[in-house]
Write a protein that binds this DNA or RNA. Structure first.
Ligand code: MN
Ligand code: MN
Ligand code: ZN
Ligand code: ZN
Lengths: 136, 136
DNA sequence: CTACTTTCGCAACTCAGTTGCATTAATGAT
DNA sequence: ATCATTAATGCAACTGAGTTGCGAAAGTAG
């Protein structure tokens, strides 16, 4: 018979393992985005890097976190601020600090013009500059 | 005594080699962006992949081409349409087709709002959807 | 507790991009 | 045209992010 986790009734996470809890707690603790590389380092004593990649995949499938590419092309994940699994701002812009590399989800809305003869579906927008801490 | 190429008096390209000419001709032939991977395949009988990477680096230093990351995080290069080394639209958005993967430089201007307590310097914008050929 | 099946660890792999070094070739000077 | 200088190239080895296959471990329903 088909099994399912009480908390996550979607398609990704089916069992609430210790590793899943650890990763989720990290995203709850601060809403800043995290690169996969930094996450792997952060939990290297608790789980294997393959496990990290697989958990992030499943959490994203369930809409609990979302992913995007940082300025170097590396993959980042974040639990976005105002979004829930019910009301999800599909494409919000991100900001990456050029000094400290910190990445934030932005709640601003950037309007995309129509492009002649093109059907635009989504937009990946990464703003770069100095974050609050690095501004002063 | 310091040497310098007649055509490129910047800091990147100093000698107009056969390989440099080959790569430049590809960018002249069509203004669509090219991924490094596809360029390497395209010229694999004429030069080594290391040479491709190095030539692209130098051409970008000279402002003859520009680079950005495609939707998979891979590096793409293009000779932009309206830009010259004198008048360069530093940050224009790009479009990548989700069906055929083709990438185009866009000339539209997307206005970036101010972000409180942040100093925005540049924006990487990648629009995705169907290109003209794939729309119909 | 048991049986079922998801998840994990590990090792090996893929692939984009880089580096060091010996060799080749473009260029200015003669 | 030839030479000397040094930029540019080829090659092989490497790095680092991300993936895959498989046997072992651990959630969960009953
Ligand atoms: Mn976000
Ligand atoms: Mn462009
Ligand atoms: Zn910062
Ligand atoms: Zn297309």
């Amino acid at each position: 018979m088909q099994q399912g986790c009480v908390n996550f009734v979607f398609m990704g996470i089916k069992r609430k393992t210790k590793s899943v809890t650890t990763v989720l707690n990290i995203f709850e603790a601060s809403h800043d985005a995290k690169s996969v590389v930094s996450l792997i380092t952060l939990v290297k004593n608790e789980m294997n890097k393959t496990t990290v990649y697989r958990i992030l995949d499943r959490l994203e499938q369930d809409g609990l976190i979302h992913s995007f590419n940082g300025k170097d092309g590396l993959k980042w994940y974040a639990k976005c601020n105002g979004c829930t699994s019910h009301k999800h701002f599909d494409t919000h812009p991100h900001f990456q600090c050029t000094k400290c590399d910190k990445v934030e989800c932005l709640t601003v809305d950037i309007s995309i013009p129509n492009i002649k003869n093109h059907n635009i579906e989504t937009a990946d927008i990464l703003l770069m500059g100095q974050c609050e801490a690095c501004c002063s």
